[in-house]
Design a protein around this nucleic acid. Sequence first.
DNA 1: TCGTCGCTTGAATCCTAGC
DNA 2: AGCTAGGATTCAAGCGACG
Lengths: 376, 376
Amino acid sequence: MTKIKEKRAAAACSLPLNQILAGDCVEIMNSLPEGSVDLIFADPPYNLQLRGDLLRPDNSRVDAVDDEWDQFAGYAAYDQLTRDWLAAARRLLKPNGAIWVIGSYHNIFRVGAELQNQGFWIMNDVIWRKSNPMPNFRGKRLTNAHETLIWAAKSENSKYTFNYEALKSLNEGVQMRSDWVIPICNGGERLKDDQGDKAHPTQKPEALLHRVLVGTTNPGDVVLDPFFGTGTTGAVAKMLGRDFIGIEREESYRKVAEKRLSRIRRFDSEAIATTKAKRAEPRVPFGQVVERGMLRPGEELFSIGSRHKAKVRADGSLIGNDVKGSIHQVGAALEGAPSCNGWTYWHFRREGKMIPIDILRQQIRAEMEGEVSRPS
Amino acid sequence: MTKIKEKRAAAACSLPLNQILAGDCVEIMNSLPEGSVDLIFADPPYNLQLRGDLLRPDNSRVDAVDDEWDQFAGYAAYDQLTRDWLAAARRLLKPNGAIWVIGSYHNIFRVGAELQNQGFWIMNDVIWRKSNPMPNFRGKRLTNAHETLIWAAKSENSKYTFNYEALKSLNEGVQMRSDWVIPICNGGERLKDDQGDKAHPTQKPEALLHRVLVGTTNPGDVVLDPFFGTGTTGAVAKMLGRDFIGIEREESYRKVAEKRLSRIRRFDSEAIATTKAKRAEPRVPFGQVVERGMLRPGEELFSIGSRHKAKVRADGSLIGNDVKGSIHQVGAALEGAPSCNGWTYWHFRREGKMIPIDILRQQIRAEMEGEVSRPS
DNA sequence: TCGTCGCTTGAATCCTAGC
DNA sequence: AGCTAGGATTCAAGCGACG
C-alpha cells in the first residue's frame, strides 16, 4: 500500500459515516478530511425570489417556498454562498470523485458557471422532466415542468464512475438519455410532520437519487449531501449499500430524516430493485404536425367525401365555416356531433388522393421510438 | 403621437428589414437604432473548452495552452464575447422586447448568468428534447439528448409578448410545458452545399423557431438573429409574417441563406392569425346588459346550484344578502373569496334553465364586431 | 372489492387597463 | 407613479367518501 493510499484509508476510517451532522455545511465540510468522498449530491437553495401570494383559479393559495433559508440579498450574496460551498465540496472529493447539483433557472446558471470556474468538468446536464408538474395558473409563462441537474467530475482528468450498462438496463436496454421522466415526490413517499403538513417544502423523489447513485457510484462508495433536508440521498444510499454523510442545519429536518433512515433496509445484494419505466402511447398534439411542416398553415383538410372542409392555422387550430378550434372541436361542430376524433375525421390531399391525417401522427410516433421513459 | 413614439417609428423605418447583414454582430448591432427590435433569437457559438480553440468575434484565435490555468483564460474570453453581444442585443431591444438564446452545457450556464447580470429577466428555460439524438458512441456519458433555450424579457418590468392561447392550441388544448420534443434537423430540411455536404454544422429545425415565434411574437414584429447561419430564424419569420434582420459573418452561410429565403412564401393571413386571448377582447360593462334590456332591473341571478342569489339593479350593480356592488364584488363577498369573475359566476333563469350571464356578454361582443369590421 | 367523484396539492421569479 | 377595480386563470395524481 502506498503512502497516499494509506492516508486515504485512514481518512476514510475517521469519516462520520451514515450520520447526519448538524450545522453549516461549509464549516463542517472543511472539518472533514481532504480527498475522502466519492460523490457529492447537492440540492442547494434555489433563490426563487417569489413576490406576492399566488392563487389558483379556484382561489386556493399555493403553499410557497418562502422559508428563511431561501432568502438572499441578491445575486452577489447567492454567488458567495455558491463559491464557498463548492470550494469546500471540491476539497473533500477524491481526485476521481464527482458531484451532482440540482437547480432551476433561478440558480442553475450561476451554479454551473461557478462549477466550471473552479475547475470541475461537466459530464452532462440532465433534465428531470416532471410527469406531474404544477401548472402555470395565470397563463403568463410556460408550465415550469422540469429541473436541471449538472453532473461534473472533479477535474477534466478524473476517472469518474459511470455504470453505463446499469443505466442502460434501467432504460430497458436502450442507452440512457440526458432527460429523465420522473414524477414529483408526493403520495406515501412524501414525508409529513406531526400536523400532517409536508415536512420539507422541496423533498426530492427517491427515483431521482436511485438513478444518480446506480449510475455514478459503486457499492461501498461514500456519498455526501451538504443540504441533506429530510434525507432522500441518505435513504437511497442506504438501500443501495452506499455509505452516506448528511449535513443539515435545521433541527426539524434532521429529526424527520433520522426517523426515516432508521426504517430503511438495505436491499439484498442481488435484488437491486430497478424502477421500471412504463410504456404508453405518447399523446401527439396536432400542432406538432404543423410545426414540423408536415401540413402547412393555410392548407385545406377535408372530411370523408369532402362534405366539409377546414383550413389549418399556424397555431395548430382549424378554421372552417366560421368555426375555430382543435381538429376535434371543428369536426364535431361541422357534424353537429357532441364529439369527433379529428385524427380519423380529417384528410389532406396529396397527388389527387385523400390521406387521413392520422398517418402523420403515426410518423411522429415512429420518430419517437427509442424514448423509453415516459409518464405512465 | 408622442415624441418617443415618433422616434421609434423613425427608427423602424431606417431598419434594414428582411435582409442579411454581413459582418461582426456586435459592430452591426451597435450601428442599428436603439430600442427598435421586438425579439432577438440567438444561437451563439458553443466552441468553448474544446482545448482552448476559441475564436474572438473578429475571427482571431485565442492563444491556448492546455494547462489548467489556461482553462480560465478560455472561459474569460468566452465570457467577454458573451458580455459584448448581449449588451449590444440589450441596447437594440424595445423596452418590452425579449430574447431567446440556445446552447448546451458547454456554454449555457455562462450565458444564463450573464443574462441575469445584465438585468434580463428569465421567463423560462426551455428544453429542446431531441427525438432522434446522436448516441454516445463510447458509452462514457449519457446520450446528450437535449439542448437548453433561455427565454428572457429585457427587464423585470417588461410587458413581454406571450401568446398563451396559441401555444395551448399547438399543444391540443393543454398548456405548453417547458420541455419541447422536436426532431433534429435532417432530411429534406437540412441544407446541403454544392458538394452535397451539410451547409452548416448546427442548423436548427424550423419547428423549433415556429414554436418560439408563434409563442412570443405577433405578426409584423421585428425579429433579429445575430448569428444567422443558414437563416432558419429568417425563414420561419417570413412564413409567419414577421420581419427579420439577420447578421452573419461567413459568406458561405449568407449565400445559402439568401437562396433559401428567396424561395419561402408567406402563409396567408387567415392561417397566420392565431387563437386570441380573452384578455384581448373588448371590455363589456355589465351595465350594458341591463341598458339593452337583456336582463331587467329586479331580475334575480343565481350562483351554481343556486346557493346564492342576487337582484339586478337599474345601474348595473347587484344587491344580494345586503351586499351591494358589481357582479364581481357581490360574488366575491357571498363566497368569502378574495376575487370572483362575476361573468361566469352568475346565471339567470329562462324556461326553467340556468344560463350563465357570460352568454349575454358574448352576444354584445358579436354585435360590436359587426359594427367595426367592414369590407376592405 | 371496485369504480367514480370530489377535494387537495406540488421549488412559482404568475394581471393590467385606466384613472 | 401609484392605486383601484375588472375579471382571467390549472394539470396530473393521490386519497377518502360513497355506492
